[in-house]
Amino acid sequence: MTTADDFRALHERPEPFLLPNPWDAGTARLLAHLGFPALATTSLGVANVVGRTRATRAEILANVREIAEATPLPVNADLENGFADDPAEAAQMIAEAADAGAVGASIEDHTGDRATPIYEFGLAVDRVRAAVETARQRSVVLTARCENLWLGVNDLSDTIKRLQAFEEAGADVLYAPGLRTLEEIRAVVSSVGKPVNVVMGFADPSITLEQLAEAGVRRISIGAALSRLALKSFVDGAREMLAGRFGFVGELPPITELQQAFD
């Protein structure tokens, strides 16, 4: 089996799998060492590395290559909206991500325009259809994302309508960032036939893996949450240092733990 076959098979298991989001080679190797079965990039995590909240197209593709080369695990690429409105142009980024080593990729219906943040329904579906065509040519697992909820468009019915249309257009995995409750998650999962990814960076953190499995979720990611957690630890330590205290040094993991993952 190829790495792409392995990644597709993870979505076909009866239980959900955890898909964490590293942001560089080091974090990718740490996650692989811990035993995760696959990895996903995070565009916000990439942006954070360079001190911004938005990464460029080139930076995202370079990060896909870096993470894909860091471990033998399957990699799913967060490609935002493909950095293009036109369906064919957006789909081209999927081909480039595959060239960089990704075996999965996502496409969003988020325009990047604050005035009109979501693509019109027909264009959104056309974009997924073009992405599916490219993904199939490259043996890439295609995730279609509806961005309504996290952008403040609190319309679950429209979100479900879009996901159903994306499924009909051929998407392999469906994803609606911003689902917060088990009830919302169950409503989405029960409305479609393809595997659903839930990102726990937005959801109620008290929801357990067992509850997600019971709801029928097949893939669980975390978005940029691990990156943000790392930055919080960094800032907390720096503030403690400014205050003239160094207690955080006593909480550092042994260097041998890093050596085991990196050597």
Rank of each mutant, 00 (worst) to 15 (best):
137 Q>M: 09
69 E>C: 13
157 S>M: 02
237 G>A: 14
118 I>K: 01
78 D>C: 04
77 A>F: 07
132 V>E: 00
53 T>S: 13
248 F>A: 14
244 G>H: 04
245 R>G: 04
38 A>W: 04
73 L>Y: 13
218 R>G: 04
153 V>R: 03
176 A>H: 09
212 L>V: 03
43 S>W: 01
29 R>P: 06
148 N>W: 01
172 D>T: 08
33 H>E: 06
60 I>L: 10
104 G>C: 13
128 V>Q: 13
44 L>A: 13
76 N>T: 06
229 L>W: 02
249 V>E: 15
157 S>N: 14
201 G>D: 07
83 F>A: 04
251 E>T: 11
85 D>Q: 01
222 I>M: 09
38 A>P: 08
235 V>A: 12
243 A>G: 08
76 N>Q: 11
35 G>D: 06
124 A>Y: 00
181 T>G: 10
158 D>N: 14
227 S>D: 07
156 L>F: 04
212 L>W: 08
37 P>Y: 13
226 L>H: 13
7 F>W: 11
86 D>G: 07
85 D>A: 02
214 E>R: 15
16 P>L: 02
39 L>M: 12
96 E>G: 04
12 E>R: 15
60 I>W: 00
134 T>K: 05
158 D>F: 01
245 R>W: 00
263 D>W: 12
17 F>Y: 10
75 V>S: 09
198 V>E: 12
33 H>M: 03
194 K>P: 04
209 L>E: 11
234 F>T: 11
69 E>S: 14
233 S>T: 14
171 A>E: 09
243 A>I: 00
155 D>K: 06
47 A>V: 01
11 H>N: 12
130 A>Q: 07
103 V>S: 02
196 V>H: 04
145 R>Y: 00
239 R>K: 15
33 H>A: 10
143 T>G: 01
35 G>K: 08
76 N>A: 08
208 T>E: 07
115 A>S: 10
26 G>W: 03
158 D>P: 11
95 A>C: 09
67 I>W: 05
157 S>I: 03
228 R>S: 05
49 V>H: 11
22 P>A: 09
158 D>E: 11
230 A>I: 15
17 F>E: 05
136 R>V: 11
20 P>T: 07
25 A>D: 06
211 Q>H: 05
238 A>Q: 02
136 R>T: 12
45 G>T: 02
219 R>C: 11
250 G>Y: 14
61 L>W: 04
86 D>P: 12
89 E>S: 14
87 P>Q: 09
190 S>A: 15
158 D>A: 12
38 A>T: 07
260 Q>L: 13
247 G>L: 12
216 G>A: 14
151 L>S: 05
117 P>D: 02
242 L>C: 03
178 G>D: 03
111 T>V: 07
224 A>Q: 13
90 A>L: 06
216 G>P: 12
131 A>G: 09
230 A>G: 13
140 V>F: 09
259 Q>N: 11
161 K>R: 12
185 I>V: 15
5 D>K: 04
87 P>T: 09
243 A>T: 00
48 N>G: 13
256 T>Y: 02
